[in-house]
Simulated scan of single mutants.
Amino acid sequence: MKVETTGRIFEGQCAVRTEVCRAREIGALTAVTTAEGEQIHVCGACLQHLSETSAWHIPGTRPRPRPRRVVETRSIW
């Protein structure tokens, strides 16, 4: 889903509440608007999580490259 940040920061409860949420009760939030005009109050941790998992796309940003998993194998011979 395409969202745009408003740049406003305020206190409140996060409306998204992913597993990494930092504002389940009260905390710093920002408002994002969807393409349909809906405004969603979201904490920075949830915003980053949804952006990194490609659930949300913020115009003008690029997703961070995911770290590669390196598996080392060692021979005992």
Results as ranks from 00 to 15, higher is better:
Arg74Ser: 03
Val20Phe: 05
His49Ser: 06
Ile40Arg: 00
Pro65Gln: 11
Cys46His: 01
Gly27Glu: 03
Pro63Glu: 08
Glu4Phe: 08
Val20Ile: 13
Glu38Thr: 13
Leu29Asp: 04
Thr61Ala: 08
Val20Asn: 08
Gln48Ala: 15
Gly7Tyr: 08
Arg24Pro: 01
Ala15Cys: 06
Arg22Pro: 00
Glu38Tyr: 01
Trp56His: 03
Glu36Pro: 04
Arg69Gln: 15
Gln13Lys: 15
Glu25Gly: 07
Gln39Ala: 08
Val71Thr: 13
Phe10Tyr: 13
Pro65Ile: 10
Thr73Ala: 00
Gln13His: 09
Arg66Thr: 15
Gly12Met: 10
Leu47Trp: 02
Leu29Phe: 02
Arg17His: 05
Pro65Asn: 13
Thr5Phe: 06
Arg66Trp: 11
Thr33Ile: 12
Leu47Phe: 04
Gly60Lys: 02
Gln13Gly: 07
Arg62Asp: 14
Ile40Tyr: 03
Arg68Trp: 14
Arg64Val: 07
Gly27Met: 05
Thr30Ala: 09
Ala35Arg: 15
Val16Arg: 03
Ala45Phe: 12
Ala55Ile: 10
Trp77Thr: 03
Gly7Leu: 14
Ile9Gln: 13
His41Gln: 12
Phe10Ser: 03
Val42His: 04
Ser51Cys: 01
Pro63Met: 11
Glu4Asn: 14
Gln48Asn: 13
Thr6Met: 08
Glu4Leu: 12
Glu36His: 06
Glu72Val: 10
Gly27Trp: 12
Glu19Thr: 13
Thr18His: 03
Val3Leu: 05
